[in-house]
């Protein structure tokens, strides 16, 4: 379980996270929904120890982040995490050198699934294909938790479909997934829990199937209700 407790962060005088709290569980897809600038990326960076925060606490399976935990939790940010002058094979080699949980076979099969080959140079790939390589680098780590930041943004429709397939595949089986988006349509039926974020706090946390069953509302309906009030 990933527990985010009352996390606060400021950039200068501007508050980006103002006491954010939520939990994400193993075996579930948790989706952080909010407009750009609502603090989605910042909280993922904070969970990964890539940006410090002032107050609050973040626990992963009850423990604070330390360096060994990068073998338990992987992050696929909305930006390339590998040197683009490398070939994909060299990027894989780099991952294999540093992570004991790197799964070369999984990486290879994912790459094939995305119609890419290891001799390709990252810098020569299209934006969508770069995003896929980034995804492979994160998903081929045999970790318990995977964080994905805006996996669908700025990507063509076919790549979006391929990436959406990841959510129904064995790749995330039994893992805890946190995914952020500002457009819910792509993954509306793929997520378990939805967390609506606005101005650095959680405004609503709910189970998608429960609201459909108990209130006959879609995720967008709930968003409309929450953001209009």
């Amino acid at each position: 379980m990933i527990e985010v407790k009352e996390v606060e962060k400021k950039y200068g005088k501007k508050s980006v996270l103002s006491g954010m709290s939520f939990t994400a569980h193993k075996g579930e897809v948790t989706c952080l929904i909010g407009v750009n600038g609502s603090g989605k990326t910042t909280i993922l960076n904070a969970i990964m120890g890539l940006t410090p925060f002032k107050k609050g606490d973040i626990l992963i399976d009850g423990k604070r982040l330390h360096k060994e935990m990068y073998e338990k939790i992987a992050y696929i940010p909305d930006t390339m995490t590998m040197i683009s002058s490398l070939k994909i094979s060299e990027a894989f080699e780099f991952m294999n050198d540093f992570y004991t949980v790197w799964n070369q076979e999984k990486a290879q099969s994912l790459l094939t699934f995305f119609n890419l080959t290891t001799d390709m140079k990252i810098s020569e790939l299209s934006k969508g294909n770069k995003a896929k390589v980034n995804l492979v680098l994160g998903l081929a780590l045999d970790v318990d938790y995977v964080l994905m930041d805006e996996p669908f943004s700025g990507i063509d429709i076919f790549s979006r479909e391929e990436i959406a397939n990841v959510f129904t595949s064995h790749l995330i089986e039994n893992r805890g997934v946190i995914v952020t988006t500002h457009e819910i349509q792509d993954i509306e039926h793929l997520i378990d829990k939805a967390i609506l974020i606005n101005d650095g706090i959680v405004v609503k946390e709910f189970n998608a199937e429960e609201v459909r069953e108990e209130q006959g509302m879609s995720i967008v309906d709930v968003m409309r209700e929450v953001y209009r009030s």
Binding site: G27, T168, H189, L190, E209
Partner: peptide, 17 residues
């Protein structure tokens, strides 16, 4: 469970249920 989730593009936990 997974095949169906994949074809229908829905959460495998939902299919499970």
């Amino acid at each position: 469970r997974r095949e169906l989730a994949n074809t229908l593009k829905i959460n495998p936990n939902t299919v499970q249920r």
